[in-house]
Nucleic acid binder design. Structure first.
Lengths: 147, 147
DNA sequence: CTGTTTTGAGACTCGTTTGTCTAGAATGTA
DNA sequence: TACATTCTAGACAAACGAGTCTCAAAACAG
């Protein structure tokens, strides 16, 4: 569905949105907080920066920070930046060129699912996800439960 | 989403349901009709037969045939037979152990999508898909448009 | 200037999936 | 029996994703 790199990217942005606003946080620190591989997480920073979602800075006190208001960053933006514009975009049955003019037998039903996913990605912002971390007992980390 | 092998399996069953009832059709013939690799399609027959969805017979006049009424074969059965019982079952963000007690920030919204997909797999039968091939201008083949 | 911290880019390994191919076991026909 | 047809199982290679590692460039601190 979403590539691992894309999942890491979303987690990183939500983590940054949940932290202090203007601070540049080193990638390895964010990775430790999220319980992820620092090396692999670092590979997502490039695409995110090129897409204008984060800004990064080298050297001591460097790191990564959000480039925009987290309420203006949609999950769709992250997916597009890392995975490209193709989440669930293709035919369920794998038929090439399946579409309105030459649909497969499941095309209509699958289009409904696709629309749901698309709306979810468009409507959900990184800031909204971060806000829910506080109000509800949600988690971002892959580590052991710390309840 | 669905593995290639699983997609091939669904296409094969719908193709068989669309053909004559009791006939054993050679796999290479079905593959030609669907525009798929015969060797790869053949690898899906084993799991499908073990799951009791098709029966196969060797030798001349042999081949593959549906083992049951196609209206009693759900797409879910094919997915379970080939991919196992895990379509979209996991967390969107990839968090291990994400669930009702320790949800990720997108858990609730994603559960709705998951339920949609699950219902689609459960409600759709191979027979229903085959029936729609006739009434509407649908296609199964990966080959060039034959309009 | 020297050394440390950090990003950035890429090579590399590993496992899974996709796809092709081969050999063998059934099955039917002459 | 001899032979053609077909499934069955598995070996094999190519492609991809995930993840680790290394080296260089930038930035700062002393």
């Amino acid at each position: 569905m979403l590539s691992r790199a894309c999942q890491y990217g979303i987690l990183l942005l939500v983590h940054l949105a949940h932290g202090e606003g203007g601070r540049f946080e080193p990638v390895h620190e964010a990775a430790a907080g999220l319980g992820l591989s620092a090396h692999f997480l670092a590979k997502t920073v490039g695409p995110l920066a090129r897409a204008g979602l984060v800004k990064s800075y080298r050297g001591p006190n460097g790191g990564v920070a959000l480039a925009r208001d987290p309420m203006q960053i949609h999950v769709r933006d992250v997916v597009r930046a890392i995975d490209g514009s193709t989440p669930v975009e293709c035919c369920v049955l794998g038929l090439p060129g399946c579409g309105e003019n030459r649909p497969c037998p499941m095309h209509d039903a699958w289009s409904a699912v696709r629309a749901n996913v698309s709306r979810l990605l468009d409507d959900t912002t990184v800031g909204a996800l971060a806000a829910r971390l506080d109000t509800e007992s949600l988690r971002l980390s892959s580590l052991d439960p710390e309840h």
